[in-house]
């Protein structure tokens, strides 16, 4: 069953391609880590919506208690709004809402630019997602599936496409996610500042084993990473040599 899915998928979509949108490149300077800025903006926004929510809720609760019906035949005594009051009750809230909205939108746009501006000199990895695994290819030709070894302290940009259906690379720890799909090239970047392991998981429904499609980013110190990359490359060389002999 699984295999049938896989092969038919490959058969249907052997010819792929892409339409890479504009890749903005950040001008030099310090690397702005979107994950950190995300947390900052999130905290701000949470405060914002909590205040609005609590104010609304308190007003509603106050009105509910204050104006509860005390006699069975009691009726409301609504205020008569003058034309000016009618307009004011629209315009003032509209301005308040819009001010808040546009303030948040501006902050969000800023953060968005951080997310989409890949720092110069990032380590570029290719991803080919397929049902149901993440297959990475390093610049030195080393390929790995499931895990992605990277160097700590260096931004990583992933150039993505898919062999079959739409997938999405999601790394919760780096607060980043982007779909990969056949026929288009997409990208995301993240900044593993320290060494450590982080879950990669698929966030776009891709069939039976969607939830089983996960892997790990393994960020290692520079020298360790270099050693790993060299060892892996050597393995390929040996394998090629052996393949050539036989």
């Amino acid at each position: 069953m699984l295999k049938r899915f896989g092969t038919s998928a490959l058969a249907v979509l052997t010819v792929l391609g892409a339409c890479s949108g504009a890749w903005a490149s950040a001008a030099g300077g310090a690397i702005k880590n979107p994950a950190a800025n995300w947390q900052h903006l999130w905290d701000e926004m949470l405060l914002d919506i909590t205040i609005i929510g609590v104010v609304f809720a308190l007003i509603i609760i106050y009105l509910l208690i204050r104006y509860r019906r005390t006699q069975p035949d009691q009726e409301g005594n609504p205020p008569v709004l003058s034309l000016a009051a009618q307009h004011a009750w629209v315009l003032i809230p509209v301005f308040l809402f819009m001010a808040d909205d546009l303030f948040l939108a501006a902050r969000g746009w800023n953060l968005w630019n951080d997310y989409r501006s890949v720092p110069a000199g990032s380590y570029e990895v290719e991803l080919k997602a397929q049902m149901w695994s993440f297959n990475f290819k390093h610049p030195n030709g080393v390929e790995e599936s499931g895990t992605l070894h990277v160097e700590a302290g260096k931004p990583v940009v992933v150039r993505m496409t898919s062999a079959d259906v739409v997938h999405s690379m999601f790394i919760p720890d780096f607060k980043v996610k982007e779909d990969s799909m056949p026929g288009r090239v997409t990208y995301l970047w993240f900044y593993p500042e320290k060494s450590g392991e982080h879950v990669i998981t698929c966030a776009e429904y891709c069939g039976m084993m969607h939830s089983g499609m996960h892997g790990k980013v393994i960020a290692m110190p520079k020298d360790q990473f270099q050693a790993w990359a060299d060892a892996e490359k050597a393995k390929i060389a040996t394998a090629n040599a052996e393949g050539g002999k036989s």
Binding site: W38, L104, A105, W109, L111
Partner: peptide
């Protein structure tokens, strides 16, 4: 009220990159 307000983080494209499809 709760649903509407939690829509605002979802509406922000940058914030949504983390919470999208979760």
């Amino acid at each position: 009220l709760i649903g509407g307000l939690t829509g605002i983080p979802n509406a922000m494209s940058a914030i949504d990159l983390h919470i999208h499809d979760t």
